[in-house]
Nucleic acid binder design. Structure first.
Lengths: 219, 219
DNA sequence: ATTAATTTTTAAGTAAGCTTAAAAAATTTT
DNA sequence: AAAATTTTTTAAGCTTACTTAAAAATTAAT
């Protein structure tokens, strides 16, 4: 299967999770930076390969086979991120960029070697779960978006769900890092803004950021 | 530049070295598993990009720019081989196969990180020299083919120049490994066959093998 | 030095993965 | 509910990297 196909099923999987199953061609096209027409074309093609179900004007739905393909690509991506992060002094954004390419050129055999070397980690450096070699995610995610938390409580950052350099630069600067602790000091105007205390600094985040930072309550 | 282009200049570079500059389209086509027509087409195209000089019916000659591109791809290939060989328990053939794909999806930045991590090695696990980040090979090669050595002398294996699984399996079985010592006990019929003593075993190699095993005299 | 064989080139054609433009359908706004 | 907007689909076309088939040139054999 080609890189284009792998990226296509991956985009459907990711957008499905993120945008509450808005997996219509336009949404996927945007994610991939291609035209809507190209997305429709590709959807039809992948339907003939039993990777997804296609019905005109309906959201695209991955089949079992398509989902497995997506998860195996995501597995390779996250394993590469984990490996590069551990071995080299590289930013989250940089490891993402490299993994984005390497993921398509990695045999299952090599992926397993990397996993084994790392001690079969369950999460990558963003806190995203790493699917196993059968394309299954066995960990269950109890984290919530930082936009959805309660004032006054303490939380542990569990996930930074982004590909964006600006965001990661901001995170690096402010101690927003997988595993770190923060306290929510105030929620403003319907959770559009969130004030947190982290590393003895008070910062205010808007929803662009609080919707992609996931946390678990700190008991 | 595309994968096809990177592989094309790499093939010219490698065949130029190996086959005494027989870099006519047919030879490159064979190396890449494409038709002669495709090789001619690509050659013309790359000439317009100043990667090679093309004259009808003449061998293809890489320009400075083309040579540098080839060497930077080869650099990435050999760095990946060195890394995978060091970190994971993988055969020479397996690391080659993985590196063949990874080489095209590796930024210069990452290549430098890998090199640094490995202590800027000058040779890969086959004994092949690793070009530096400017695409230059600074080590000078004094090794000779095992088909060209003298009876009775002792040599150190410096290079196993192959991509072939059969060959590597044979090497692994018989202790033919980069850095190991062997003694040439006999040359037969115009060097078509060579008898060597290695690891207390006597084995006879034909020219298919002795022409791709390089050695340095053991002083 | 011809003839035969091989290689290279040209020409025409294909598949993948895109594009833009316009038509059709769905969705949103008023 | 009708009109306006947006999205999806269809259609036609493009580029890359190939292919096969046949013509032209080179190389090898007798």
């Amino acid at each position: 299967m080609s890189v284009a196909i792998e990226n296509f099923v991956k985009a459907i999987y990711k957008n499905g999770k993120r945008d509450n199953n808005d997996t219509k061609p336009g949404n996927i096209a945007k994610e991939l930076g291609i035209s809507n027409a190209a997305a429709t074309d590709m959807a039809k093609k992948l339907a003939t390969k039993d990777l997804l179900n296609y019905e005109k004007y309906q959201p695209l739905q991955l089949t079992k086979k398509g989902t497995k393909m997506a998860l195996l690509v995501i597995r390779k991506h996250r394993l590469w991120e984990a490996l590069l992060f551990k071995m080299f002094d590289m930013s989250l954004h940089d490891i993402h960029r490299e993994a984005e390419l390497l993921e398509h050129q990695t045999s299952d055999f090599l992926a397993n070697k990397i996993s084994e070397y790392l001690g079969n980690p369950k999460f990558d450096p963003h806190g995203d779960p790493i699917p196993n070699s059968n394309g299954e995610i066995t960990t269950k995610d109890t984290s919530v978006q930082l936009s959805n938390v309660q004032e006054g409580k303490s939380y542990i950052i569990s996930r930074l769900m982004s590909d964006d350099k600006e965001f990661f630069d901001f995170c690096a600067l402010n101690g927003l890092k997988y595993g770190n602790t923060l306290v929510v000091s105030k929620q403003f105007s319907n959770n559009k803004m969130t004030q947190i205390l982290i590393n003895n600094n008070t910062i205010v985040l808007n929803q662009d950021f609080t919707s992609i930072i996931y946390v678990n309550e700190n008991h």
